[in-house]
Design a protein around this nucleic acid. Structure first.
Lengths: 160, 160
DNA sequence: CTTTATGCAAAACGTTTGCATCGAG
DNA sequence: CTCGATGCAAACGTTTTGCATAAAG
C-alpha cells in the first residue's frame, strides 16, 4: 500500500468520529502500522515503525492511542509473558470472522497464530462460558487461550 | 495452623534439599503464606503477609523465592491483566488432581477458581495440543485459559 | 474558536540486580 | 567452615502522567 493509508484507518476514522474522537496523523500512522503487519508488535515496535512514517510522533501518543483503540475494541492487547504488552488489530470487525489463538515460544518469544481446531474450541468455550456465567453469576466478555512451549527452531537448539 | 508450619513447607523442604537449595525461615514463611490462602496473591501481598510472620524478610527475597518456586514447578505464576504477577501453590503435586482455570473480573480484579467443565476442557485442550504440536512442530509445555468479565457485584454496580 | 490530542520530560510502577553480610548445613 | 541466601538500595524497562503547546473540527 505505497503512498497511502490502508483501509483499516478508513473505517476507524468513522469509528473515532462517532465517539467524538479525532483522527490525527499520528493515529493514522499507528493504525497503518498495525494494519500492514502480521507480527505481534509491542508499543516500542509500533513507535519505531510509526517514527519512519511520521518522525515527530512520541511514545506517549503511541501508548495513549493504543489504550484508546483497546477501549474501542479496535485492537486487542495481549500478554505473552515477556514483560511487555503486544497489540493486534481486531480483524474480526473488518468483514470476515478471523478468530485465532496463539502459540507462544517461551525461548524466542515467537508467536504463531493458529486457526486450526478453532471451531471445536470456540464451541466448547461458548458452552463453558454459558455454564460458568450461570453458576457464578458472572458476565463473561472475553477469553484468553494460549499455548506455551518451544518452537521447532528453539527445540532443535536445545538439543545441541 | 497456629504456631506451626503447614505441610506445604514440609514436602517442599525435601524438594529444596534434593536440588541443593536450602530451607530458610523466609522461604518457610513464604510457603506457609501460599499454603494457607485461597486468594491469588501478588508478590507485594505475599511480602506483607510474610512480614507479619517474619518482619525482617525483604521484598527481593520474596521475588527470588517465587522465581525459584516457579522454576521447581511448586508454584504457578499468573497474569490477570492488572500489571502485576499473581502466584498460586501447585496443589496438584500434593496428592490429588486439582486442575482448575480462572474467571477474572476486569473491574475489581476478583479471581474465581473453577473446576466445572474441566474434564471436557482438558480433553479438548489435549487434542488441540496434539494437533498443534504436529502441524507446527511445536513442543507445547503448558497452556493458559482464562475468562474475563464482570463478577456479580460489579455487574450490579454498573447498572446503578 | 473550542476542545481534544500531542510531545516532552519526569514520575510511577513492578521487578531485578550488585554487593556486603548472614546463616544453613 | 563453606557456600547459598539475604537485606538493602540502587537500577531497570515498561507504562503513565502533568503540563504547556499544537492542531482537528
Amino acid at each position: 500500500m505505497p503512498g497511502g493509508f490502508g483501509k483499516g484507518s478508513v473505517w476507524c476514522h468513522g469509528r473515532f468520529r462517532g465517539y467524538g474522537y479525532r483522527m490525527t496523523v499520528s493515529r493514522q500512522a499507528i493504525l497503518d502500522v498495525l494494519n500492514t503487519t502480521v507480527k505481534h508488535l509491542s508499543a516500542e515496535d509500533i513507535y519505531h515503525e510509526v517514527h519512519k512514517i511520521h518522525p515527530s510522533s512520541g511514545m506517549s501518543t503511541v501508548y495513549r492511542t493504543l489504550e484508546l483503540l483497546s477501549r474501542l475494541k479496535l485492537v486487542f492487547k495481549f500478554d505473552f509473558g515477556d514483560g511487555r504488552a503486544r497489540y493486534e488489530l481486531n480483524k474480526r470487525l473488518e468483514n470476515k470472522e478471523y478468530h485465532h489463538h496463539h502459540l507462544v515460544c517461551i525461548n524466542c518469544q515467537r508467536v504463531i497464530d493458529y486457526t486450526d481446531f478453532i471451531e471445536d474450541e470456540v464451541e466448547l468455550l461458548k458452552k463453558t462460558e454459558k455454564g460458568l456465567s450461570k453458576k457464578y453469576n458472572f458476565k463473561i466478555m472475553r477469553h484468553i487461550l494460549q499455548f506455551y512451549g518451544l518452537c521447532n527452531r528453539c527445540e532443535e537448539k536445545g538439543k545441541e
